[in-house]
């Protein structure tokens, strides 16, 4: 039998990995699929609860509950994609014994699955909110897609970097976790960054995740006043740079990840 072309092999491997990973993500533990939805829903619920207690109805002209939902979903796109991608190598170790399966395949497929599942969870939450009479359709859908996609690219790049680095130097995971811990706070998920004094805010604007969240909200509501300094090109430049570093590391050390 003739050998298959590399592209065809890659495609069949992606399709097979997609089935495997999606199954694992949805059914590996009891009710695994339910947690995919409940986790962001829980964050959304308690943030809305806090703001309700504080009696904050609008944030910079945006309905508070929608501000929270868009922020949480956008944040989860980044957080879940990067952490699932970072763990793709160790989770699929036994499958690399088929030489058709390369580290890059496992990494990309995981990132795509997280995007699909998190978006799905986000849409379900929006449907739920629409039952409560909220205006859930975005004012500028292309801008929202652009923001989400930018965050996802950034997460993919960061996930690649983490996957390679943590395999080469396992201790680095501790350091990276330490750095990423405050991300929940500094990305503007809980507090609107525009409420901070400009001298601090300017530093936080360097965080591309914060840029992504704000861009998604700005796209969602035309009435929303985002912080000054919101820049799509900054988000995408960071994402492309991160992706470049990740791919470079993968190119240099990819085979080492599956070599004993």
């Amino acid at each position: 039998m003739a050998t298959r072309s590399p592209l065809l092999i890659m495609w069949t491997v992606w399709a097979a990995l997609f089935m495997r990973e999606a199954l694992w993500r949805l059914f590996s533990r009891r009710g695994a699929w339910a947690w995919l939805l409940l986790e962001p829903a829980f964050h959304i619920f308690y943030l809305i609860f806090i703001y309700t207690v504080l009696n904050v109805r609008h944030i910079s002209g945006f309905d508070t509950s929608m501000w929270v939902v868009v922020g949480v979903v956008a944040f989860f796109i980044f957080d879940r994609t990067s952490s699932q991608t970072a763990n793709a190598i160790s989770a699929n170790k036994s499958l690399f014994s088929y030489r058709q399966v390369l580290p890059a395949d496992a990494l990309f497929v995981r990132a795509v699955i997280e995007l699909v599942l998190t978006l799905f969870a986000g849409i379900l939450v929006l449907l739920l909110l629409s039952l409560f009479g909220r205006q859930v359709l975005p004012d500028d859908l292309p801008a929202v897609i652009q923001a989400i996609f930018g965050l996802w690219l950034l997460a993919l790049g960061w996930g690649l970097v983490r996957a390679v680095l943590s395999d080469l130097v396992p201790e680095i995971d501790i350091v990276l976790n330490l750095i990423m811990r405050p991300m929940y706070l500094i990305s503007g998920l809980m507090l609107p960054l525009s409420s901070l004094p400009p001298s601090y805010r300017d530093w936080l604007l360097l965080n591309p995740v914060a840029q992504g969240l704000e861009a998604a909200r700005a796209g969602y509501s035309a009435a929303y006043h985002p912080f000054t300094g919101l820049s799509f090109s900054y988000l995408y430049a960071s994402a492309v740079l991160m992706l470049f570093i990740g791919l470079l590391l993968l190119r240099k050390f990819g085979l080492r990840l599956v070599t004993e």
């Binding site: 298959r4 065809l8 092999i9 069949t12 491997v13 399709a15 097979a16 089935m19 495997r20 199954l23 694992w24 590996s28 699929n92 036994s94 499958l95 014994s97 088929y98 058709q100 399966v101």
Partner: peptide, 22 residues
């Protein structure tokens, strides 16, 4: 010894291998 994913059933492992082999 390798090549079997412990969390998947025998059937799922078999399907995976068939898929990646075209």
């Amino acid at each position: 010894g390798g090549g079997l994913q412990g969390s998947l059933s025998g059937r799922q492992n078999a399907k995976f291998v068939c898929r990646i082999h075209g």
